[in-house]
Design a protein around this nucleic acid. Structure first.
Length: 796
DNA sequence: GTGTAATGCTATTGG
DNA sequence: AGCATTACAC
């Protein structure tokens, strides 16, 4: 047992930790030591003799769960800490559904469909139903289905509900319920659940199987829920059900930081907690340990503009600190340059590390300008969110093979790879397979497997190819229990033809795709090795040690069919089943299905020491010494979509509150007067949130032209434009790659570009680029007939 | 059925 | 500006 952790808590925190029995609500202001309270509370439970197997702790990200476990391990020891049930709602209940899902008719190896899979399935259904995807946009159809599920409305109930039907009629989308029904039945047939199903089906399970409910009620004697303000109705009911037996439920949250209403989060869950548990104890953590007085003060004035909130008074004993800075720039690129320069200067002047900085924005699309500026300054950065590794095309392709290997009925995986790499099974054949499957109410795989028993109209040649494909997948499936994740993963990558296909592509993008596949395989290797240490420690280093890298020479020399001549094949194929808990591909896929970018473990110190770029949503729960909040412009932040309702606008304001409170020492806000959107220049106004800041906490610095922010600008700006022909900061900038070059900008006032003038372009020509200014063409490497070409030019 | 070129849509926020 | 879908030629 380690140091006395209770001494590290202030009186309220300590009470919250020591009060272990009965319902408890902790309202935790930003930076008030919430995580510390949660971890110590769990450690304290264990110190008091509670079995970690009886503790369920639901966190917002898997990474948060991992970090909390590590902290708890330091107090109670690692072997005990690892037995706590801790993770996101989705991952914890996915785990439970793996063991209990058969009661609902799902296989234990069910697939988890991500948003892309879900949209793709919806597109298929729209096509089958002859519906227009311009009216029924897959994205909005999915949101509608998602909202229904999060409110525990089944497809049948959806169809029977007069009010919902009326809504859909009014929206001129009367078939919505039919699509929902089709969608649900197709997922079920494919043995697949989407994200919402994980929660929905958990509810069904707990509702319809009293024995199961009883089992988990008594298993989870103590339940803790972090970020409770961001739970939706479906999650609320699960927690309520599980806590009903012992009522040892502790929720932690901050209504001021509720920012996920758009995906069903219901702020009422926290505001009404008292109604469900009248005997509860409430603790308010109001002292902020993270930020300066100026930051806390500014944040408080922001949030005070909202009407609906729990009363609390966040304060800090920290130093006054610097005032919040507001900076105006003339373009999105200038904003990027300003941030990059400011980071560079701060690093020099204050001996700061890269990891002390975060750049936060409202939309992912804003990252580009920041990235380019940071690259120019040679500042290492890491982007969180956006397209995650697992969503990249080539990764999804290979993962689809793995998915289909594990669950043959996975329709989305099958559609994705049945003809990739091309093997002569085209759209016509696939359509026929799908029709046959629908006619007989079975999965596509069932049709493929028994293709001669179905009237498909597919000709013999295509049939043979389908058959060959099925044989290949079956051969992969047969290896699931006899090979570890890496061996099988590698085998599939080779024999599916994916590696060969990617290796043939010598373009930079192709090379990068190949590298990504290698990275995935490395991940498999690591997984296979680490798990073996865990479960199989007696064994001496086994076959994994000398498993093969793909040799380019082998790839080149093999010119037809599959690559059966790889070294890998020399390894004798073990047919002995692996032990229980061995690192199989099945386990690996379960592991990564719910992984997000934020969960990714960064190993080396060098990797960690990078400037963080992310959306404000992704920054929730994190803290940084220096925070830049960029793009504070009307229609961007607050978002255009949020301007129609007070509730939406208040959520944007909470988002702004979250952003400011990420900062420990300094918060810098910036906005730009112009910005590129879809390739078009738009003019923007400063965000209303800037005006809402109390002047006593904020510094509006003089700009270059010595004009104070907020002064009448018309004359000054005009004057500035006239004299600013060669922009000093761009002078040394080298080559700009692949940007559209506009000849004679003056000739055409619109941003439209006509290919005629592009054809006239020659090396050495003086050009005026509407975005980068004037310069000289030094290289041309695009196709002049194309709308755009890869022309490089230097600014003068 | 396959590959390339033209067109057209998108960019709130995310598990 | 970049990506996905579609149109069209082979």
């Amino acid at each position: 047992m380690s140091k006395n952790y209770l001494d590290e808590l202030n009186p309220v925190q300590r009470q919250a930790v020591e009060c272990t029995e009965g319902p408890e609500m902790i309202i935790a202001g930003a930076g008030s030591g919430k995580t510390r309270v949660l971890t110590y509370r769990i450690a304290h439970l264990m110190q008091k003799g509670v079995d970690p197997f009886n503790i369920l702790s639901l966190t917002f990200t898997n990474k948060a769960a991992r970090e909390m476990k590590e902290r708890i391990a330091k107090i109670v020891g690692a072997s005990e800490a690892k037995n706590i049930w801790m993770g996101t709602f989705h991952s914890v209940f996915a785990r439970i559904l793996r063991t209990e899902g058969e009661k609902l008719g799902y296989p234990s190896n069910f697939t988890i469909y991500d948003t892309d899979d879900a949209k793709s399935l919806i597109k298929t259904i729209l096509k089958e139903q002859g519906l227009d995807d311009k009216i029924y946009k897959p994205g909005s159809v999915l949101s509608r289905i998602s909202a229904a599920k999060n409110n525990l409305i089944t497809a049948q109930q959806y169809l029977n509900n007069a009010q919902i039907q009326e809504e859909d009629r009014m929206a001129v989308k009367p078939k919505m319920g039919i699509i929902y029904q089709q969608y649900a039945s197709r997922c079920f047939k494919a043995g697949a659940m989407d994200f919402d199903d994980l929660l929905f089906n958990t509810n069904v399970l707990l509702r319809d199987f009293p024995a199961v409910l009883h089992k988990y009620q008594h298993k989870f004697k103590y339940i803790l829920v972090d970020e409770y303000q961001d739970t939706n109705f479906s999650q609320y009911v699960i927690v309520k059900q599980l806590a009903a037996a012992f009522r040892n439920i502790c929720v932690v949250g901050d209504d001021a930081q509720s920012i996920y209403a758009f995906r069903g989060a219901n702020i009422q869950n926290i505001l009404n907690f008292e109604k469900d548990y009248p005997e509860l104890n409430t603790y308010k953590l109001e002292q902020n340990y993270r930020s300066t007085k100026n930051i806390v003060g500014a944040a408080n004035t922001v949030i005070s503009k909202n009407t609906e909130q729990l009363k609390k008074n966040v304060f800090t004993d920290n130093e006054e600190g610097e005032k919040i800075k507001v900076v105006k720039t003339e373009s999105d690129n200038a904003e990027g340059n300003f941030v990059a320069n400011s980071i560079f200067e701060t690093k020099m002047n204050e001996q700061a590390n890269n990891k002390d900085f975060a750049i936060l924005y409202r939309t992912n699309a804003q990252s580009r300008a920041m990235e380019e500026a940071l690259r120019r300054q040679n500042i290492p950065y890491r982007i969180y969110g956006g397209l995650s590794f697992y969503q990249r095309k080539e990764i999804k392709d290979l993962l689809s093979y793995y998915r289909l290997t594990i669950n043959n009925h996975d329709e989305e995986a099958l559609k994705r790879i049945i003809n990739y790499p091309a093997r002569g099974i085209g759209d016509t054949t696939l359509d026929r397979l799908i029709i046959a499957a629908n006619d007989h109410d079975v999965s596509i795989w069932t049709v493929i497997e028994n293709i001669n028993q179905f009237e498909t109209g597919i000709n013999a040649g295509a049939k043979a190819k389908v058959d060959e494909f099925a044989t290949m997948i079956k051969s992969f499936s047969a290896m699931l229990t006899s090979h570890n994740a890496y061996d099988l993963g590698q085998h599939v990558a080779v024999h599916s033809g994916i590696l060969r296909d990617l290796y043939a592509d010598k373009t930079p993008e192709g090379v990068s795709r190949h590298e990504n596949i290698q990275e995935l395989l490395n991940g498999l290797k690591e997984f296979s090795e680490s798990e073996i240490e865990l479960f199989d420690e007696g064994e001496d280093a086994n076959t994994i040690e000398n498993s093969t890298e793909i040799k380019p020479s082998a790839m080149e020399s093999s010119d037809n069919g599959m690559l059966f001549s790889f070294e890998e094949e020399k390894k004798t194929e073990s047919t002995v089943p692996l032990e229980k808990g061995a690192p199989t591909l099945t386990l690996f896929m379960q592991d990564i299905a719910l992984m997000t970018d934020a969960d990714k473990n960064v190993k080396t110190e060098e990797d960690k020491n990078k400037v963080a770029l992310m959306t404000i949503h992704a920054a929730k729960g994190l803290e940084f010494k220096y925070v830049y909040i960029v793009g504070l412009e009307e229609n961007l932040f607050p978002s255009q979509m949020s301007l129609t309702s007070r509730a939406d606008l208040e959520e944007e304001r909470r988002l702004f509150y979250v952003a400011i409170t990420r900062a420990e020492k300094r918060a810098t806000l910036s906005f730009s007067t112009t910005r590129y959107r879809w390739g078009n220049l738009i003019y923007s106004e400063p965000s209303r949130f800037i005006e809402e800041l109390d002047e006593q906490y904020v510094e509006f610095p003089r700009e270059n032209n010595n004009r104070l922010f907020g002064e009448e600008e018309t004359n000054t700006v005009k004057a500035k434009l006239n004299i600013s022909k060669p922009q000093q900061q761009f002078v040394q900038r080298p080559v700009i790659g692949k940007k559209l070059v506009k000849v004679n900008a003056a000739k055409k006032a619109t941003s439209d570009f006509d290919t005629e003038s592009l054809r006239d372009l020659q090396v050495g020509m003086q050009v005026e680029h509407e975005r980068f200014g004037s310069g000289k063409v030094i290289n041309m490497d695009g196709n002049p007939k194309k709308r755009r070409g890869g022309y490089h030019f230097i600014l003068l």
